[in-house]
Design a protein around this nucleic acid. Structure first.
Lengths: 265, 265
DNA sequence: CAGTGGTCTAGACCACGGG
DNA sequence: CCGTGGTCTAGACCACTGC
């Protein structure tokens, strides 16, 4: 079954680009294709028109269309192969667009999350925190300890350290919002994080806070987050209740390794 | 201290592109910059020349230089800001280029890894495995159970399931190589994986195999891996010894969220 | 062989950041 | 204001895939 169009649905018919909009053309195109995938108008295995025809149909140049496609590839929504075309990917990969670090917020959306702020103060950074954040001797950091619950049950015990010079945090707003949301409000945009995941048996205090018994296996995560300027903005040590919670992530293998593997130079 | 060049070192002087090489020009440029970063000739905070001047200096067009820079940005090696330029990023982010899924191999490089193949047979896929790999009723899969050790101590107990139609595996080669290396040899290129991490208390058999006591906290990971064609190629259930092992990963936040966050349309 | 994406060019104008 | 990266165009040729 080879279909140049896409079964009963031709996505190009419903796509429009607005040249008066401040939104980049490639982004308008990418978003509309993304929507069609999200809505199920384009499903796994469907093939898109080739770049040239899309460019003609929408009155765009080919590089612009390619930029839109690159966005979709980066998101794992489509796969492209020379000589074969552009095909909608398995939902599994794309469905979980959520990043590990943000999963809290999304997951809890269905679970009525609450956050209890156990600790919120400005202190001298410990050696570990200084090292992680690249701070100088005597630097001050905001130290947070929060208990995140969903559906009435505790999910995670979270310790965070942020450079005190970065922003001011309100304890009240911490109760209502994720930390990253507050950072974004202050024009700090997390862009990359370096994470380390492990496991540990619950201590007595951890067990009590998380409503578990001492010795229960807990998932641990240590993370250093950097913003789009390359600044270290947060060091976190979290402990998750493994019985109620998993950390999800989508990882992409390095293209360069494949490249080297396939080339012969 | 504003330096248009880069302190004592001008990276452009040592960069050459070979137009007769089959390696793309943008990739030649990206790799050479990457090398200079790896070798410490370019260090965190250094600023690169702007696109136009690099293009002129190397006799390339600006889009080609941009493509090289995009590669470096994707790898987290540099950050770029309009009006400010291209700056080498914190080492922390870039150092750990390693993917979670491949960490085994890299880590074990320093630890003399050994792999004991406990099980290697072709079986009917269970419902869970069929679901994960998107297989039909009655499909056959290769079932693997391996114990990975480093420095004489067991590190991980690994269960893998691969579509039997995908390739043939030799038990001998499994002892000597990582699974992904064998896949690549068969022209199967893992490109994305969907992972779920958790924790559990060791069962008696797990404890025995991993030289731990029953109840010790273990790190668990479930993963479905897709290749560059978008095919599901592997479903894995691994259990790691938390006392000797961590899972590392570098995650990048979604650009589009930032984009939306900053725009006003 | 025809069809596809991959690479590359030589320009253009715009948007943002900082002095 | 200037310098920077961000977007966009209209072409060109090449490399891989599958028939």
């Amino acid at each position: 079954m080879a279909r140049t169009k896409l079964g009963s649905h031709d996505p190009l018919e419903t796509i429009v680009v607005d040249r008066s909009s401040p939104v980049p053309l490639y982004y308008q195109l990418a978003q509309q294709l993304e929507s069609q995938i999200a809505e199920g108008k384009l499903v796994s295995g469907d093939r898109l028109e080739n770049e040239v025809r899309i460019a003609e149909a929408l009155g765009l140049s080919r590089p612009t269309v390619r930029q839109a496609f690159r966005y979709l590839v980066d998101k794992g929504l489509v796969t492209r192969r020379r000589g074969q075309g552009t095909v909608i990917a398995e939902e599994k990969v794309s469905r979980q667009v959520t990043l590990t670090s943000l999963y809290d917020d999304l997951e809890s959306a269905g679970k009525k999350p609450t956050t209890e702020v156990i600790r919120h103060e400005v202190i001298h950074a410990s050696d570990l925190v200084k090292e992680a954040l690249g701070l100088d001797e005597g630097a001050m950091v905001i130290a947070l300890e929060r208990l995140r619950s969903g559906g009435g049950e505790p999910i995670a015990l979270m310790h965070n350290f942020l450079p005190a010079t970065l922003l001011d945090l309100s304890t009240d707003r911490l109760r209502e919002h994720g930390l990253y949301a507050l950072l974004r409000e202050s024009n700090i945009f997390p862009s990359r994080a370096y994470q380390r995941m492990g496991a540990k048996n619950a201590s007595l205090t951890e067990a009590r806070l998380l409503h578990q018994s001492k010795g229960t296996a807990l998932l641990t995560m240590e993370r250093t987050t950097f913003d789009d300027r390359g600044r270290a903005i947060e060091f976190a040590q979290h402990v998750y209740c493994a019985s109620r919670y998993f950390l999800y992530s989508t990882v992409s293998m390095d293209v360069s390794e494949n490249y080297v593997g396939r080339s012969t130079y």
